[in-house]
C-alpha cells in the first residue's frame, strides 16, 4: 500500500459521492489452523450498492463475508492477515470495538434463525442491548419501522407477541432482516438469505433488497446466477479462495474476461 493510495482513499471518503467505497479489503488472507482459506483478496464494496459474491461451494465466499464484521473471531483457530477497511479504518486494529462494528455491519444468515422469543422481542433485541432508544414508545416505533421496512408489519402487526419461530420460512427470514436493520446498521451482509426459501418468498426478499439498497450498503452471497444478476450492481467471482474476477454485474455476466468465470456462469461446474 503506497502513501499515494491512502491519500486517494481519504479524499474519496470526504466527498460524499454516491459511488463512495464503503469497505475495501487489501491482501486479505484467512487461515484455519494451517489451512489457508483465502488468498490475498482485494475487493471494494461501494456505498448504497449491492455487491454479490458468487462461486462454487467451499470457495471462501462465506469466510470472506465473515471477515467483514469479524464474525471469524468466534471460529477457533482462525487467523487473518491483510486489511479490511470500513470508511478508511482498518477494522482489525486492536482498538476497534467488535460490538460497535457489528452494530454498524449487520448480518443475515443462510438459515432463518429467529430467537425463541416473541416477534417484537426479536426485533427489539438489538436496539435494547445497544440502548438505541430512550423510551418504550421510541422502541415500539423503531420495531414498527423495521418491520414495515421489510414488509412484515401488515402480516404480523396483530400478533407481535407470538413466538418468532411460529412464522413461515420466508417471514422468519424477513424477521431476521428486520432484526438486523433495527440496530441501524450501515452495511448489511447476507449469507445466502434465500437458500432455504421457496420461490415466492425468495422474490419477496429480492424486492426487499432492492428497497434496502437506498439506505444500506449490501453484500450478498448467492448460489443462484439469476438472483445475482437480478439484485446486484457489482459481482465478485470466487474460486478456491481467490477472486477470479470482479466488477459490474452486467459485465461479469455478459462479457466475462476469465474462462473460469465463463464456465461457472455457463453452468459448466459449481
Amino acid at each position: 500500500m503506497s502513501a499515494k493510495q491512502t491519500a486517494i482513499e481519504s479524499s474519496n471518503m470526504e466527498n460524499n459521492q454516491p459511488l463512495d467505497i464503503r469497505m475495501k479489503t487489501r491482501d486479505l488472507s484467512v487461515f484455519y489452523d494451517d489451512k489457508q482459506a483465502l488468498f490475498d483478496v482485494n475487493l471494494d464494496i461501494y456505498k448504497n450498492r449491492v455487491t454479490a459474491l458468487i462461486g462454487p461451494s467451499g470457495c471462501g465466499k462465506s469466510t470472506f463475508m465473515r471477515c467483514l464484521n469479524r464474525m471469524n473471531d468466534y471460529v477457533d483457530g482462525c487467523r487473518i492477515t491483510g486489511k479490511v477497511r470500513l470508511d478508511g479504518f482498518n477494522i482489525y486494529k486492536d482498538n476497534v470495538d467488535t460490538i460497535l462494528l457489528r452494530q454498524k455491519v449487520g448480518m443475515v444468515f443462510q438459515k432463518p434463525n429467529p430467537f425463541p422469543k416473541s416477534i417484537f422481542e426479536n426485533v427489539a433485541y438489538g436496539p435494547k442491548i445497544h440502548k438505541l432508544t430512550s423510551s418504550k414508545d421510541e422502541l415500539e416505533e423503531l420495531v414498527m419501522k423495521s418491520l414495515k421496512r421489510v414488509g412484515l408489519w401488515d402480516e404480523v402487526s396483530d400478533r407481535l407477541s407470538s413466538p418468532g419461530t411460529s412464522l413461515s420460512g420466508g417471514q422468519q427470514q424477513r424477521l431476521c432482516i428486520a432484526r438486523a436493520i433495527a440496530t441501524e446498521p450501515e452495511v448489511v451482509l447476507m449469507d445466502e438469505p434465500c437458500s432455504a426459501l421457496d420461490p415466492i418468498a425468495t422474490a419477496r426478499i429480492e424486492e426487499l433488497i432492492a428497497e434496502l439498497e437506498q439506505q444500506y450498503t449490501i453484500v450478498i452471497i448467492t448460489h443462484s446466477m439469476q438472483q445475482a444478476e437480478r439484485v446486484s450492481d457489482y459481482t465478485a467471482f470466487f474460486h478456491l479462495g481467490k477472486i477470479i474476477e470482479s466488477g459490474d454485474t452486467s459485465k461479469i455476466f455478459n462479457d466475462p474476461e476469465h474462462q473460469k468465470t465463463k464456465d461457472y456462469i455457463g453452468g459448466k461446474f459449481g
Binding site: 470500513l86 470508511d87 479504518f89 477494522i91 486494529k93 482498538n95 476497534v96 470495538d97 460497535l100 462494528l101 452494530q103 454498524k104 455491519v105 441501524e184 450501515e186
Partner: peptide, 15 residues
Amino acid sequence: QRIKKKKSPFIYKSY
C-alpha cells in the same frame, strides 16, 4: 444526521 456526524462509529476510543 447521526450517520453524517460520526465518521468512525465503530472505534471505541474515538467515542
